[in-house]
Design a protein around this nucleic acid. Sequence first.
DNA 1: TTGTATGCGTTATCAT
DNA 2: ATGATAACGCATACAA
Lengths: 339, 339
Amino acid sequence: MAPPSKPRRATVHDVAAAAGISRGTVSRVLNGGYVSAEARAAIEAAIAQVGYVPNTAARNLVMRRSQAVGFLALEPHSLLLDDPNIGAIMLGANEVLSVADHQMVNLVVDSARDTERVARYLSGGFVDGAIIVSARTHDPITRVIAELGLPATFVGHPPDLHRSIPFVGIDNVGSARAITTRLAATGRRHLAMIAAALDRDSGADRLTGFREALGDRFDPRLVAEVPLYDYASGVKGMRELLAREPRIDGVFAASDAVAAGALEVLRDAGRTAPADVGVVGFDDSTWALRTQPPLSTVHQPAREIGRNAAELVLRQLRGEEPAPGNVLLPTPIVWRDSA
Amino acid sequence: MAPPSKPRRATVHDVAAAAGISRGTVSRVLNGGYVSAEARAAIEAAIAQVGYVPNTAARNLVMRRSQAVGFLALEPHSLLLDDPNIGAIMLGANEVLSVADHQMVNLVVDSARDTERVARYLSGGFVDGAIIVSARTHDPITRVIAELGLPATFVGHPPDLHRSIPFVGIDNVGSARAITTRLAATGRRHLAMIAAALDRDSGADRLTGFREALGDRFDPRLVAEVPLYDYASGVKGMRELLAREPRIDGVFAASDAVAAGALEVLRDAGRTAPADVGVVGFDDSTWALRTQPPLSTVHQPAREIGRNAAELVLRQLRGEEPAPGNVLLPTPIVWRDSA
DNA sequence: TTGTATGCGTTATCAT
DNA sequence: ATGATAACGCATACAA
């Protein structure tokens, strides 16, 4: 039961032999260099004939680069299944990497075992750079990347440790402040917040913005803390809030999914939005248009975020000076019917 | 403005020098072989000291494998943004690849340019195998994989051309037939279907199952064809159906997202489920519990699908005989309140 | 058990 | 413009 011996694939050597020309010249037509028209024709014919395809491992070894950029998704559960923006960010990043002829390689980190393996992968020269989304402070992968000096970009706030790595994101504090102010301007008196993912910068920042907007009127009792940005957390948070203070007439949910959950609880409690209570979300994700009524929310330019993140690592790859700084993208408020 | 010269990383040579031992022995402690305890200790110390990390490109070159498996997501738009199962499939695949010490590499194909680049990537020996989800018939990538003889597994029906590549999936025809029958058993008289993605096997199969279940009572006029498995398509399809035949009292939506869209249209039209019209979906995705009322639907064991797909390529990698066959996973019907 | 030597498939440097 | 030849970093068959 011997393993099926892999069919040896044609090499530069083979095509050189088939074309009756030296390997050096073959390499030249592959990578672009001075080569006569006839030689080129002969070689191209030979390539097609023997079915040659370059061995990237060999190329990487000698070139010292892989033309690939890693896209690291940490915390895949909440990320891949719940985060409404991750897909758009990936697509945006892939767009610009693609035109730059770089392969985007998506790496999922789902366990300690994954962490170690991915660290090896990154160290192994499989990628020239990395985009890291939703890193947590002190994440081991982050440390590896920093130590490796691998060109990288964070999506969202970077862990404080590695200020050498730029990030692209949005101004969560400012956006939260803005939409809270807008909500208050509709004449609500008892404003509450369902604050999610406080262990992530985005979550903490949104709460900060909410507090700043309210100033003196901020009431810590009207903040429900929930673990995730998802629907179930919205349900849980809204229930808590209602139990604590029935007179609530406005709520800022940390994400659209959370807002959707809150709306359901409100409906079950016989209160309608926006008449009885105004509800606003965050993300402008697909959720926003699925709820009844459609959500007023903060628009996140997810695709643009992805594009910028990719741009930032490419810039580092090109060794451009000065080192790229962080970029904050604008987040327009989208006002619909929920408040 | 010279590009920052990459700091040369320590090699086997360096650690051999630091330990005062030959490279061969170093390689042996790395890969497991006969080596004395003292030599091992000295080398491990040296490794830590010089900060050695193996160069995977070099290792791949000589070993002729990468310990990586590609996860190809074709049609990323509908897939990454709308497909409710893709995340779970990925996680399932990653689980088993991870314990087998293989790196899952997620490749997104979003354009012709991507297609070509990914083909190069695969040919380049970056991966030892591939998992392909939602391939279309005659997809160029599929051809490349078949020609390369790269161990692979399809998720979902494989293109007819390459029967050499196994697939793991569900019995779409049977499942659709089953849930349609169940829906009919609730006493509905005018059963319609919103058929999505008929250019994919899953889409076509679900329609076939619907037709089979109805037999003589099948009315082609009551089938609305929509392009995607998403919410918007559900809205569109349901509007069409209602316009064609207002007496509809039962609808089979090709996916939960489609069903959700259909429910909204029904609600706007003043008809309630399940009283006026029974609605069933497909997937048992997160959508199913978000709708009002919760959906009766067909459960897809997404995580298991991912696990099995990974298992199938690993088996090929090990060169096991006989070649693995296709696997069809069971799809229990989950009956909730929408019909 | 350990050291030596060779090859993996490319690119790059040097003559020619 | 082209042909030899030396790396690239590692694993391994063979010799010691």
